[in-house]
């Protein structure tokens, strides 16, 4: 018998803390699979965020750093400048990357910092119990938008890939989703491409991953995948927003 599917080596052999049905675990696995396939795990430094993925440092077999909230791209910059031949990635949520860490994100991108950012967009602050995130959809109920997000009062969600694609330093920006098998497979291709771009020295690469949060959305894991498809994808269309391709 041959193995069709098994746990990647770069994913630590520990039970992740994520809630049932939360797709963070899938994103972790895809990153680990790519590290394995590219054979770079022992030459990689990962930077974990503050938020649901705060314990990501326990889940990857490469060296890991736990950064302050929003500061992962700055920390990754410091690492990459010291170890230019190492693979350096950050793994961040929407509050971390697009609210408190907006400056670090935008400037790492505009510097063309040769790092890879894995960005989990699940439209809320999961770890603290489901508050409004910069990516919370108009009308979406969270614990701090109990009557639904009203753009007149608190503005509109940020479309991160679109924003970063305007920057010259961004080499690659793609939005993917984890709501079904096909999209998960596409997500892996995007993650692989992002790491390959880093290995080729092309500059800043980001994969925005639309992810579910069944616990805070208040629905079953399967319902959450449908909610993602019906509500998030229309607002956050999937696809490649920037790809400098073979140039540079």
């Amino acid at each position: 018998m041959s193995t069709v599917f098994e746990r990647p080596k770069a994913l630590s052999d520990v039970l992740m803390h994520y809630c049932p049905g939360c797709t963070h675990g899938i994103a972790h696995r895809l990153v680990a699979e790519v590290l394995d396939e590219l054979g770079v795990c022992d030459n990689t430094v990962g930077v974990a965020p503050v938020g649901c993925a705060v314990f990501a440092y326990n889940y990857f077999e490469c060296d890991m750093i736990e950064a302050a909230h929003g500061r992962a791209p700055a920390v990754a910059t410091g690492v990459k400048r010291v170890l230019p031949n190492a693979v350096v990635f950050t793994y961040q949520g929407d509050g971390d990357l697009a609210a408190i860490g907006t400056a670090e994100t935008v400037h790492a991108a505009t510097r063309g910092e040769n790092i890879t950012v894995i960005f989990i967009n699940n439209t809320n602050y999961g770890m603290t119990g489901g508050q409004m995130a910069p990516t919370t959809l108009p009308g979406q109920v969270t614990t701090t938008t109990p009557y639904g997000r009203d753009p007149k009062l608190i503005g509109y969600p940020i479309r991160v890939c679109e924003l970063l694609s305007t920057l010259t330093g961004t080499a690659y920006a793609e939005r993917v989703a984890l709501n079904n098998v096909k999209n998960v497979r596409n997500a892996k291709k995007a993650i692989r491409k992002a790491f390959e771009y880093q290995l080729a020295g092309k500059g800043f690469s980001i994969v925005e991953i639309l992810s579910t949060c069944p616990t805070n959305w208040g629905m079953s894991p399967v319902e959450a995948t449908r909610w993602l498809e019906e509500n998030m994808i229309p607002y956050y269309p999937l696809g490649v927003y920037k790809d400098i391709g073979g140039d540079k």
Binding site: V45, V47, I65, A67, A68, R71, A74, V75, A76, T77, G78, V79, K80, R81, V82, L83, A86, A103, E104, V106, H107
Partner: peptide
Amino acid sequence: LQAESEIAAINMVLGASSAGA
């Protein structure tokens, strides 16, 4: 490296120091 803020600069120091420099 001129950082985008003092906050970023100190976190770059954290990263560089983590990498052993």
